[in-house]
Every structure is written in C-alpha cells, then in structure tokens.
Design a protein around this nucleic acid. Structure first.
Lengths: 106, 106
DNA sequence: AACGTATTTCCACGATCGCTTAATTAAAGA
DNA sequence: TCTTTAATTAAGCGATCGTGGAAATACGTT
C-alpha cells in the first residue's frame, strides 16, 4: 500500500482506464467494465484485485455483483506527492510566465 | 511517454527512490547513485534507461560521466492529472472540514 | 600506446505479469 | 431444487522485468 504500489498499479493501460472510468462515473460493477471493454471477466477481475490490493479501489458487495469505486485517499497520496514538488515542476512554466510578464512591461 | 509509462516507471522502489533523490539533490551522475545504494552498476544503468525512455529523466554527458536530472514536464503531467481530480480526492477532507466548521459554529 | 575511470550493452536466470480456458463460488429467480 | 447471473479462483503459458557477471565502449591521464 505504498506509493510505489500505487504507481505500479496505475502503470498499466487497462487499470488506468478503469480508474479514470470510475472517477468519472463513480461506483460501477465489475461486469459493467467487462461489457464495454474487449476483455475477459477473469482478466478484469485480476485487474480489480491488483487495484484493490494497492488500496486504489474498494469493493462493495451487492448480491452477486461487486461494486467498485476509487478510494479518495489513494488519489490524495498521489496529489500530495506531486504537490510536494510543485515548485519544481512549475519552474519551467514560471520562466515562461516571467518572459510574458517582461514582454507586457515593454 | 504516456502517463501509463510514467506510472509504470515510478512503480518500482529503486526507481522512485532515484527520482526522489534527483528531485532533492538536482543533477547527479549514475555512479553517485551506485555508490550509496547496494546495487550493481548494470542494474542501476538499466533503471536509468527505463526512466529515460519514460521521459522522466534526461541525460547530460560530461566526459565519461552521465549526469541525470528529472524533467519538470514529467512531474507536471502527474501533477496536472491529480489536480484534474482534486475535487474528488479532497472530498473526504472537505467533509471533515465541514464537520469542523459546524463544530465551531456551536 | 597503455591504463584507469565511468557507464553501458550483452547474456543469462529466476520471478512476476497479463492473459486465456476451465472450474468454483455465491446469490437470485423460476 | 434447478437454472441463471455475476464474479472469482485455479492452472497454465508466453512475455516482460529485475538482477548480476562479463564484455564492450568512451573519455581522460600518464
């Protein structure tokens, strides 16, 4: 459940797509994802397991269905991490911003 | 060079540690990382290659040495992505915040 | 030219990944 | 109870990953 595990879990096209779909649509059943994607149910189930074990999604049981949703804590961990270095990754934008500022003053 | 590739590259303890080290110390030679870690030079070189191919670090040549540093663009991609969903991952904090607000009003 | 330093590429190996088919579990409906 | 629906677990397979040792490459120094 470390940040490495989080990144590893999201480092796969299928799983990143699942997470983004859940972030847009909210809670969805495993079958919903199997329906529109061209992926077998076992394969999808495996991806959900990886996401669950990484702490990215939680599972809620409703009769036969397994409803999945994204854990805000997981997203927050990534958010906090990137914000820690925000000054760094905005430095090139800052430079650009300064150039624009200087241009304006002319 | 997609976001998936970025996450995949960071989904490894050694590589995440390398990136955080570079973010703290700035530009470092491959050998510097080999020195303090208990990892062989070939293994370290491979990790740098993965990070480079994912667009996370850039290599600058100085005589025999290869100096590595983090590309702000890569960090920004993660930052922007998480900020896209900021409202979502701050919702649980918001709820906590509201509870605190209500408590204050009493 | 020969040597030392810094790093990468090549080759091999065991471990893990992503997927499929088949079997299993579990709950709802007839 | 038998069947259908929803999903997971089990087993097996090729592909990729992470690593180390050995060799190769590249630059600087003597």
């Amino acid at each position: 459940m470390s940040l490495t595990d989080t990144f590893a879990a999201l480092g796969n096209d299928v799983r990143l797509a699942i997470v983004e779909r859940l972030l847009r649509d909210g809670e969805l059943a495993a079958g919903d994802l199997v329906a529109d994607g061209e992926m077998s149910a076992p394969a999808m189930s495996h991806h959900f397991r990886v996401l669950r074990e990484a702490g990215i999604v939680i599972q809620r049981v409703d009769a036969q269905r397994r409803l999945y949703s994204v854990r805000p804590e997981a997203m927050r961990a990534i958010g906090q991490w990137s914000l820690t270095y925000r000054e760094f990754w905005e430095q090139s934008l800052d430079r650009l911003g300064h150039v624009i500022e200087k241009e304006k003053r002319k």
